[in-house]
Design a protein around this nucleic acid. Structure first.
Lengths: 345, 345
DNA sequence: AACCTTACCGCAAAGGTTTGCGGTAAAATT
DNA sequence: AATTTTACCGCAAACCTTTGCGGTAAGGTT
């Protein structure tokens, strides 16, 4: 049960004052060479390190960055966290982590706790059901830098790092239409702060541009869990005619949807095409390989953390309010490549 | 930039001492009803909350639990983290997280930092290359409870929550042999603190028991990355005859291995069977669905956190040293179910 | 001999909380 | 009227560090 050694311990041992020890160790103030040497030697051998709590109290700095993500069990968010962790570690910060499980109430609690614990910065992916936006302002009010990641709230003056989901979805839709697909269904999360919301926008915009009628029955809102997506897929099969393509804004759900179709005896993509979102590792391994949108989660986490730490360091909360938009790529695989002769059916 | 309100602020406003305010708020000591009421009202309206840093300094408690995992981008570890988070949250603890990336040096750094930051407990999945075990003892030396998760170090007197990997691997091997497979290859991580090490043990033990010769060329060590596993798979195809089954101790790698075989024109499982480990969600969706071992990551995280918090609360570091072993299940799917007539080939 | 530099070093406050102990007034007792 | 009790409350230390300011010697200057 080795007690931690404090300045006081060293001071007592050397019969000098605490302040002298402090100055000696930090090479500031006027301390004789003799004393400085002795202090440093003793500190070394006793493995003195300043107490982070005392330092935090004094300087109002803790070295902690609070991270709030919607879900721990999500490959994409994991890559984001990975990127954040690498950069934080490089800069000597530690990560306090909390998960909102996409519920605003949890997020609010985490924010309060982190602010109160003097986190030096907050990195948040807003919960999908967020309606009260003031909580984010309150953070700024406490002088704590905040960065949004993955989900932005445009009307807020907060830096954010996101991907160009609108553009990606646009490309995807144009690609599908270019292939010849016309009855394109959409399974997505329509809640406001969600990838799905933006995808929905792009979906309708492209259809309009291409003069394809928007059919409500082809749009299904879901929370992107496997079970609800399976249900959605079954629902789509009730329609006559069934869709010729289904865009799902999540890889896992897309995988499950595809399986429903296959179990019903349909061929993907010859009877019905399917696409996903995120390009998770398995997508190229399932059968058929999934057409999806590859997004740079790792890079996003890094960029966001760099932005946050930069803001912390210049500590001006300068409200530059950079909104960094990273590019994502359409990855075309066999789940949408229909053999030409099958178009005649 | 709203300043946080302290006891001093309330005391000054009410013209009483700080200690009285403190006592009034905590319902201890002797304070007149009148004063207590006024203090509480003001504290309420000024939203007073005790400062965690000051409290930490005083009580040597921070409400933080340090978690060190090998890898953020791993579905299984994510489910473990999820379990830990749920229980920690319920008990009012916050999670400080760090990733070793399976390198002991990172782990050591994280341990030092967390201990120094007065984390109240540590939850560690030891880095795979751990050789110096003293670092864990040092934690106990500082009076901080420690729990191992997912990977145990049996010779250490530290509580641990793990799964019965030996038994699972035993079942898997016996199942395969029962099916008729005889040239069973193994792609695994043979480093000491790894699932793979234990699987290797079970592998050899079962072969011995079943009087099947152990062939060195069928055992390939790898770090369970997709690229090295692909390489391993290619290597296995050089052998004559090729194995009739390949056990891979990771689902992602198994998926990649399977793809190599299929691209080489082999049928899984008719030409060669493949199995994985962990039962990640995609395993039932790939083609053929993967036989694998389902492990309760979420439960493991919960149990481990419960154990840790319990130890913290009784604060005796009683060295009960419980080693909790959770059961896992063999999940048999088509990647090992060979049609009877194919056994004749 | 009286004064000023110089070179060190310590005090105390600040950051915020808890807590043992001592103190003071009013009320109760003898 | 003198003493004890009761009911409150404040001081100061403790946890640990930094830092402005004041203080004390020794040595040098006039």
């Amino acid at each position: 049960m080795s007690k931690r050694t404090s300045l006081k311990d060293i001071a007592k041992e050397l019969n000098i004052s605490v302040s002298t020890v402090s100055r000696a160790l930090r090479n500031v103030g006027e301390v004789s060479e003799e004393t400085r040497r002795k202090v440093k030697e003793l500190a070394e051998s006793w493995k003195y390190k300043p107490d982070p709590l005392a330092l935090g109290l004094l300087k109002n700095k803790t070295g902690y960055i609070g991270v709030i993500l919607p879900d721990p069990v999500n490959h994409y968010f994991s890559t984001v966290l990975h990127g954040m962790n690498i950069v934080a570690q490089e800069n000597g910060y530690h990560l306090l982590i909390s998960y909102s499980y996409d519920q605003s109430v949890n997020e609010q609690k985490a924010i309060d706790d982190f602010v109160w614990a003097r986190a030096e910065g907050l990195m948040i992916c807003p919960a999908i059901d967020t309606i009260d936006i003031r909580k984010y302002q309150q953070i700024g009010g406490n002088g704590i830098p905040l960065v949004f990641v993955e989900r932005d709230i445009p009307e807020m003056d907060v830096p954010a790092v996101i991907t160009d989901n609108y553009k990606s979805m646009q490309s995807l839709m144009e690609f599908l239409i270019g292939c010849g697909y016309r009855r394109i269904a959409l399974i997505t999360n329509l809640e406001y702060y969600s990838v799905g919301r933006i995808c929905y926008q792009a979906y309708t915009d492209v259809l309009k541009k291409k003069r394809i009628a928007l059919r409500k029955e082809l749009i299904i809102h879901g929370n992107m869990s496997i079970s609800t997506s399976v249900e959605a897929a079954r629902h789509l099969l009730q329609l006559t005619p069934i869709p010729d393509a289904v865009v799902v804004t999540d890889d896992c759900s897309a995988m499950a949807v595809m399986k429903v179709f296959q179990e019903e005896g349909l061929s993907v993509p010859d009877d019905i095409a399917v696409t996903g979102f995120n390009d998770e590792p398995f997508t190229s391994y399932i059968s058929p390989p999934l057409t999806t949108v590859s997004r740079p989660g790792y890079l996003m986490g890094m960029k966001a953390m760099e932005l946050l730490i930069e803001t912390i360091k210049k500590s001006k909360s300068t409200t530059d309010c950079e909104k960094i938009i990273l590019e994502s790529d359409l990855v075309i695989r066999n789940s949408t490549i229909r053999s030409p002769e099958r178009w005649t059916r």
